[in-house]
């Protein structure tokens, strides 16, 4: 209860974080109730008569944002796209946080050869170009959400791991960690029970940035033709719009909304991280 009140108070003092959280909540609602909110099946080709596909319809009461060149309802695609964006963003962020924290904790606490191996690994990953790696992996395996999330997680964990590691390095010298060690706690117990909760907020901060990275990466990969062909995502919507020359048709209703949704969701991650940065490192901002 106190925690909830503290959070609320924090949000009130941090308008950035408040806006970010609100955007997240809005998209979460859209994703959960996508089936109810969408007016059509986003995949279905709609007809406006016998064998006449309902293509390029302008926005109207039946099609809030009109239809695509292929005769699909744009609004419904946009709503369903929320699901894939959140899935990609949240799972990627979760993987980054998990992998990054685990590596950072182990490297920082155990030190020695474990530390050296993990740091070498992270150096190698930092030497791999991000987007090219994702593209090559998508091309090598079957392109899909799993591939994408996995490659994003694989590429982003070192940043988190490094920060967590340096945090752990300072924590392990603290008295209470020393005390736990003296009382005979196993290293694993110290790492996961005593230290992990301390670094969790920091990891979450990196997670919220990873949400944005993952969504932007999905969009870029889709634009270049390496997206999950079966998914309904904002990136694929944009790809579809550009391939069908929505710009030349001045079909703003088609290519502006998905772009804005991406901006909003990625921005939310930045805002949350900026807001909570002040909570975590009060010295830094003010």
């Amino acid at each position: 209860m106190r925690a909830a009140r503290a959070t609320l108070g924090f949000l009130r003092s941090q308008p950035f974080a408040l806006v970010g959280i609100s955007i997240y909540l809005l998209f979460l609602v859209l994703a959960i109730f996508a089936d109810q909110i969408a007016t059509h099946d986003p995949r279905q080709i709609l007809f406006s008569g016998a064998y006449r596909v309902a293509r390029y319809l302008p926005p109207s009461a039946t099609h809030y944002l009109g239809t695509t060149a292929g005769g699909r309802d744009i609004f419904s695609q946009l709503v369903h796209g929320t699901r894939s964006a959140l899935t990609v963003g949240v799972t990627a962020a979760f993987c980054v946080v998990f992998l990054g924290s685990l590596m950072g904790l182990l490297a920082g606490y155990l030190g020695g050869w474990v530390d050296r191996i993990i740091m070498r690994l992270s150096d190698i990953v930092l030497g791999l170009p991000f987007l090219p790696f994702v593209l090559v992996i998508s091309a090598l395996t079957r392109p899909g959400t799993v591939t994408l999330v996995a490659s994003v997680a694989l590429m982003l964990w070192p940043n988190t791991a490094r920060v967590i590691r340096s945090q752990v390095l300072s924590l392990r010298e603290r008295g209470w960690v020393e005390a736990a060690r003296v009382t005979g706690c196993s290293p694993m117990r110290i790492i996961f029970v005593h230290i992990a909760p301390q670094v969790a907020p920091l990891a979450a901060l990196y997670g919220s940035i990873a949400v944005g990275w993952a969504i932007l990466t999905e969009a870029s990969a889709s634009f270049l033709g390496f997206g999950d062909p079966a998914a309904i995502s904002w990136g694929l919507m944009l790809q579809d719009a550009f391939a069908n020359q929505a710009l030349s048709r001045e079909a703003w209703n088609w290519f502006i909304p998905p772009g804005l949704c991406i901006v909003a969701l990625v921005l939310a991650g930045f805002l949350v991280s900026r807001g909570s940065e002040k909570l975590l490192f009060p010295k830094l901002g003010d």
Partner: peptide, 10 residues
């Protein structure tokens, strides 16, 4: 922040 959040190709 917005310019950083917008997809470059868009």
């Amino acid at each position: 922040l917005i310019t950083r959040a917008a997809p470059e190709f868009w």
